[in-house]
């Protein structure tokens, strides 16, 4: 119990003193997870919207498959991506292993099923009449999808925040693909893992508190922006 209190104190200390290494690690976590969610969203929101909007044979099956992949074990994804981007793997020439890009790739793969499936879920929560209203008002498919997305915007933003949270808290794949290299691919989660391994539990907890803090700030900011519109 004492550790939690000491961790809180240390967390505040690290933030206030702008400890360079912690700042660097935090910014890196933020940048990598933001990139992951943006890239994943660019694919998943349109694809999810299209799947939701159209009725086709096998739609139920597709949605079920997507939902199954919610539970992708991160270590498995990490391993598979590793085999691909290792220098002796098929994409080895791209020199991706042990770089921030590798972490982004792993995280994107991990959150894509969740983002797609939950976008579909968010859109399903919108009244069917909205779709009809948009179409009968003369909207084309893309315009109608935009109208539905707009109606579901709170839910969709919620999905994005969830995806971001999932990305920023990723450890297994980040470790395996990034290598936890100091000053290059060390992020908050892998740093926590290292400090735990080193026995410095207080520092681990402090970093954890900072991670939660970042997630909270992101969530608050996104909600404020949402209210404006």
């Amino acid at each position: 119990m004492q550790e939690i209190w000491r961790a809180l104190v240390q967390a505040v200390n690290l933030i206030v003193s702008l400890d360079t290494e912690v700042v660097q690690i935090s910014l890196r976590s933020l940048y990598i997870s933001a990139a992951s969610i943006i890239i994943a969203a660019l694919f998943c929101v349109p694809i999810g919207s299209l799947i939701h909007f159209h009725d086709f044979r096998g739609k139920r099956v597709v949605i079920n498959v997507i939902q199954t992949f919610y539970s992708l074990p991160t270590v498995v994804v990490g391993l598979l991506v590793f085999l691909f981007i290792s220098r002796s793997g098929p994409l080895g020439g791209l020199e991706l292993l042990f770089t921030p890009a590798a972490i982004i790739i792993g995280q994107v793969i991990l959150i894509m099923p969740m983002l797609t499936g939950m976008t579909i879920g968010a859109l399903s929560g919108v009244d069917k009449t909205i779709r009809d209203t948009a179409l009968s008002s003369g909207a084309g498919t893309a315009q109608a999808i935009r109208a539905i997305l707009f109606e579901a915007r709170f839910a969709v933003v919620g999905v994005l925040i969830l995806g971001f949270g999932r990305a920023i808290s990723e450890v297994g794949a980040a470790l395996m693909l990034g290598g936890n290299i100091r000053g290059y691919t060390r992020v908050l989660t892998t740093a926590i893992s290292l400090e735990t391994q080193r026995g410095d539990l207080v520092l681990s907890l402090a970093l954890g508190i900072i991670l939660i803090g970042i997630a909270m700030v992101v969530s608050v900011i996104m909600n404020i922006l949402l209210q404006r519109y």
């Binding site: 009244d127 909205i130 009809d132 209203t133 009968s136 003369g138 909207a139 084309g140 707009f150």
Partner: peptide, 17 residues
Amino acid sequence: VQVRRRMAMVFQKPAVF
């Protein structure tokens, strides 16, 4: 879409964005 743009429909349940 072109055909629909010459029509308009009001539904039973008042639907507003």
